[in-house]
Design a protein around this nucleic acid. Structure first.
Lengths: 252, 252
DNA sequence: CGTAGCTTTGAGTGTTATCAACTCTCGTGG
DNA sequence: CCACGAGAGTTGATAACACTCAAAGCTACG
């Protein structure tokens, strides 16, 4: 009974309209006036809750919708024929995923909830139709997709040219900025993903990630216990990240 | 005088309209009817020729236009604070570049001609306006941007999880497919970029790239002399590439 | 024909992967 | 409430792949 009650609460919390959503300035409605936002809102058919480990979509699934993370976190990952995994992205509240499915009308990767999460489901065909009518929405969509491209390009630099130390430092700074943008602490992180996931994202073995955390802690850059991390020295972390010149332009 | 004459010829060749362009089925006009295509065509203000080494745009330049490669090839590259370079992409005839500039109204990377090249210059503000009126164009733009995201995600897998051998094999196969799509040979490549560029693209030292070419040649997978490469065994190259499961969906 | 840049090849090194063992944490059930 | 087990994380030893440094050969362009 207690569980049922909490479920009811959770469902009601899912009914927040775009205009009342605290994420609207980070998400798709950004820059829309109230009437446009209402149209967008009416299009969002249902909001979906996922538990840790549940898949939002799988490789090959037809593109039905794009997704906005309302709460929680996701990872997207691709698989090589021999089973090697690569995590192509982590998506936090206010971030949109699924754009890579537009070109072939199929999702080219898996998206999995890293913790209890909620997404807004935005039917793609309707979105495109609405974007045709609402200039602000079309504009915002181009911007968001462009940002995704920039994000990926920064990751290319990270994977192609950075040392293991720089990769983890950059990654932690990215998490920090994204948390700050949500109005949360820039220094106290609660990582939703395993060392394995981080390794698969950063192109490193999980043992390397673990060792780096230990070393950063020894050096006083951060304190951590498991997935709880406190960044004690953002300046030094930035120095360790050996930043790429455009690293502060996007994603915080 | 001879040079002047050849320059005149080159300029006249720049005046091909979209509807007469042999690249229209690979480029932005794809899927547009003739009247829509004419509108797009009238928007393309000038076509620009660049010599090897010339910059199409530089990091920080304001976004004025997107570019379609008509002839030749480009590389885009980012710079880290300490001078490390990463090449984020190579762009061949029929391919579009500049989408990463939309989000911040500035180009986040450099674009340099690798050989004598021509581009069509598509003013971004006008493109967005036209896309608002022409559904087919909006649709095509979303598709093209989405394809760019997928391309980058495949590169993330390449850089994050593949061995040096797999990276070069994948890269050569990508070149092969893109040449074939242009109606050219899938096996005889004339690389426009240096070993250094390839290394910066693949996250490898130039010496590693060179050694891999030598090894592939010893093993009979290809023959080469400098930048002229003949792929003798595409099947074996594919095996060497240890393909990621979605590698055949995009970019050939 | 000379020079500068590109490419190849070699030798030695180092960063990070791999393999392995151990510990910790947390949820579950006795 | 504690014992247990499984998954996650840490740490150590060793090895490998690719990097760096170095030198020589090649190509192309002036």
């Amino acid at each position: 009974m207690a569980t049922r009650r909490s479920k009811v609460v959770s469902i009601s919390s899912l009914k927040v309209a775009c205009k009342d959503c605290n994420l609207r300035e980070l998400c798709l409605p950004l820059g829309l006036d109230e009437s446009d936002m209402r149209q967008l809102d009416s299009m969002i058919q249902r909001r979906r809750a996922l538990k840790r480990g549940e898949m939002l979509y799988r490789t090959g699934d037809p593109l039905r919708a794009l997704y906005a993370v309302r709460r929680g976190a996701f990872k997207t990952s691709g698989l090589m024929e021999d089973g090697r995994v690569h995590v192509t992205g982590f998506f936090m509240a206010g971030e949109l995923l699924g754009f890579d499915a537009i070109t072939a009308d199929r999702h080219p990767c898996n998206a999995e909830a890293l913790e209890t999460s909620e997404v807004c489901e935005i039917p793609y065909d309707k979105l495109e139709t609405l974007a045709q009518e609402v200039p602000g929405l079309q504009h915002q969509l181009f911007k968001v997709m462009s940002r995704e491209i920039v994000r990926d390009e920064q990751l290319l630099v990270l994977l192609g040219r950075m040392t293991a130390e720089e990769r983890l430092a950059s990654c932690l700074l990215s998490f920090s900025r994204r948390q700050a943008r949500l109005g949360l602490s820039a220094t106290d992180l609660s990582l939703a993903m395993s060392r394995q996931d981080l390794g698969h994202y950063l192109g490193l073995a999980l043992e390397t990630v673990s060792r780096l955390f230990s070393r950063f802690q020894e050096e006083g850059v951060l304190e951590m216990q498991g997935r709880t991390v406190r960044l004690n020295d953002l300046a030094r972390l930035h120095a360790l990240a050996g930043a790429s010149s455009s690293s502060h332009t996007v994603h915080g």
